[in-house]
Design a binder for these strands. Structure first.
Length: 582
RNA sequence: CGGGAUGUAGCGCAGCGGUAGCGCACCUGUUUUGGGAACAGGGGGUCGCUGGUUCAAAUCCAGUCAUCCCGACCA
């Protein structure tokens, strides 16, 4: 391809709305262009890279036995209603109506769709296992799109869904997909970390994310500092909390006492007021959903993990309780709740805004057996001191972990070494879905004995655009992008240096020979000064640059520059053409 | 959804009551040509949109839309 056919869209200045390197460089080098918040045009080079990544994904998926299909992007509401996700997906799902007022959603994911398909065709155990995948557009109305392609509202995802007769079969495919993903990211020259993850709103068990370590990552990962022997890695959402120092178990004789604490609300203020460690405080956080009001009690020095909380409750949606609800449940203003002397009892039903809601208490296990605790007084501007677990409040459910683990906590696997925190961008996810969707949509197959059974599912996703931009995040310099050969738009950027038509014709002949040789080459045949071409070649970042100038005209010698190493080699045209012949 | 900021030429910005500008990019010509050329000439904007104030609005006021940042769970 020639520059005069496929023009460059490079620019010198960073777009003002870009924050991260990949967004800036991909825009400056003319790969992508934002059309609206979270929506991007892929320009010719950008689409070439995108297609190459898709091909790598497709090749490997096929290699590992998956089969490609295409599902409609616009999905009917009934499917979502059957799975219960029409409501559960919330505002993230983009919805619309057709002319008959029938509801549709622009698919944010396709579990329902594929399960529907499975129901149409799967009847016998002989057809299983099967792994369907597609590479298609997804829509998610993100609260805040950002970082260019890393978090946008329309994006291409490879999503695969497997169906199995039993756990064993599911695990086999799951392990294959993990290998497949490793192959895919290796082929893209993308360094990834795989971490244990939560399976989130999708439900299910067994879940691993493929992460690219990056300061701009939106996920926090916790890794065991002994990577060699232990090697534990997980998403912070999922990491069990093992404190480096145990919380003191003690008994106090003194009885609870209410103290005046005007304007002392936050844990820090309370700890300061009573001159005690934050660990001695019971933090009370009150949540609410359509059925219940949930009072959560955890040690004052830590944060609640909403993911763990949702999993324990088995719900997808949870909100902080409204001030009205809090006042009703604690008879105090927001900020003074505690487990002792509450006006409500566990499992009691109360009416809030005409809705009946059940009261649920959840205590973190780290409060078990502890004394000399302080909590809110369930009265505005008051706190209780001298609280004792087992006497003033009782933890009946054992081993509930509600705390977010963090940097420097103990590794939950080896329980010897400390965890180390790092940020990551999720580019792939594999997980065991279970029977949630096959049950909801009533999918059954007959087993060997002619008995009906519900297949279990696995689910495997890769964000293509996100993979593309994380490659750039990992591979650039102050001049521009540096593409690995596997995804570069063209392998060679041919810089023609000429100042008359005769010389230009010579270089054109070189280009024609390369094309005849089946080489992937982009010929910068513009009538521009050399400096412009060198800079555009660096910015666009094709793997190898070929300079054909005076030395070529005179001696038929070309110069090859490796974009990554900067290394230059000179080689005669004939050697080059014969050596590089594909 | 709450707080903040910004909308002026393709891109990046200045102007902030009285003729709409600069740099880059673009077009023409001449000289140049191995790391973003010089000179000369030229094209391009209902100043986000709507309404108001004023003799006069890019500029002041109100509303609205869009974009970006921070937060939206740690009481």
């Amino acid at each position: 391809m020639r520059a005069t056919q496929l023009p460059l869209f490079t620019q010198k200045e960073d777009p003002k709305d870009a924050q991260v390197v990949s967004h800036k460089l991909l825009t400056r080098a003319g790969y992508i262009k934002k059309q609206a918040s979270g929506f991007y045009v892929f320009l010719p080079f950008g689409w070439m890279v995108h297609r190459k990544i898709e091909e790598i994904v497709r090749k490997n998926m096929n290699k590992y036995g998956a089969v490609e299909v295409h599902l409609p992007i616009l999905t009917p509401a009934e499917l979502w209603e059957e799975s219960g996700r029409w409501n559960a997906m919330g505002a993230e799902m983009m919805r619309l109506k057709d002319r008959h007022a029938a509801g549709f959603a622009l698919g944010p994911t396709h579990e329902e769709s594929i399960t529907w398909l499975a129901k149409q065709y799967l009847q016998s155990y002989k057809q299983l296992p099967v792994n369907y995948y597609q590479i298609g557009v997804k829509y998610r109305d993100e609260i805040r799109p950002r970082y260019g392609l890393i978090r946008c509202r329309e994006f291409v995802m490879k999503d695969a869904y497997s169906f199995h007769i039993d756990e064993k079969s599911l695990d086999e495919t799951y392990q294959k997909m993990r290998e497949c993903y490793r192959d895919i990211f290796n082929e893209c020259s993308l360094e990834t970390l795989s971490v244990e993850a939560d399976s989130g709103a999708m439900g299910g068990s067994g879940s691993e994310e493929f992460m690219v370590a990056s300061a701009i990552g939106e996920e926090t990962l916790l890794l065991c500092s002994d990577d060699k022997n232990c090697g534990y890695r997980s998403n912070q959402e999922k990491t069990p909390f093992v404190p480096a120092e145990n919380y003191p178990v003690e008994k106090n004789e003194k009885t609870p006492k209410r103290k005046d604490t005007p304007n002392v609300k936050t844990v820090d203020e309370v700890a300061d007021f009573f001159k005690v460690d934050k660990k001695q405080f019971i933090k009370t956080v009150i949540y609410e959903n359509s059925e219940s009001i949930i009072l959560v009690f955890i040690p004052g020095d830590r944060e609640i993990s909403e993911v763990k909380l949702k999993n324990i409750l088995g719900v997808a949606e949870l909100e902080m309780a409204s001030p009205e609800a809090i006042e009703k449940v604690t008879s105090a203003a927001v900020g003074f709740a505690g487990p002792f002397d509450l006006p409500v009892k566990e499992n009691e039903e109360i009416i809030i805004n005409k809705n009946k809601k059940k009261i649920i208490f959840l205590y973190d296990e780290k409060l078990k057996g502890r004394g000399n605790l302080i909590s809110g007084g369930n009265k505005t501007d008051m706190h209780y001191i001298n609280l004792q677990e087992g006497r003033d409040f009782i933890i009946s459910k054992e081993f509930i972990d509600l705390v977010t683990a963090q940097d420097l906590d103990l590794c939950p696997k080896c329980k010897k070494n400390k965890l180390k925190g790092t940020r990551g961008i999720e580019v792939g996810h594999v997980f065991k879905l279970g029977k949630k969707y096959t049950e909801a949509l009533n999918v059954t197959v007959l087993d060997k004995l002619g008995k009906e059974l519900i297949p279990t599912m696995g689910c495997y996703g890769i964000g293509v655009g996100r993979t593309l931009s994380t490659i750039v995040e990992q591979s650039y310099d102050d001049k521009g992008i540096i593409w690995p050969e596997s995804v570069t738009p063209f392998k060679y950027y041919l810089i023609g240096i000429f100042n008359n038509d005769t010389d230009k014709k010579e270089i054109e002949a070189l280009y024609e020979k390369m094309i005849a040789n089946n080489m992937s080459v982009y010929f910068d045949d513009r009538d521009e000064r050399p400096g412009i071409k060198f800079n555009d070649a660096d910015l666009t970042g094709f793997t190898l640059q070929i300079v054909a100038g005076k030395n070529y005209i005179k001696n038929k010698v070309i110069e090859i520059k490796n974009r990554k190493s900067g290394e230059k080699t000179e080689i005669s045209e004939s050697d080059f053409l014969s050596k590089e012949k594909s």
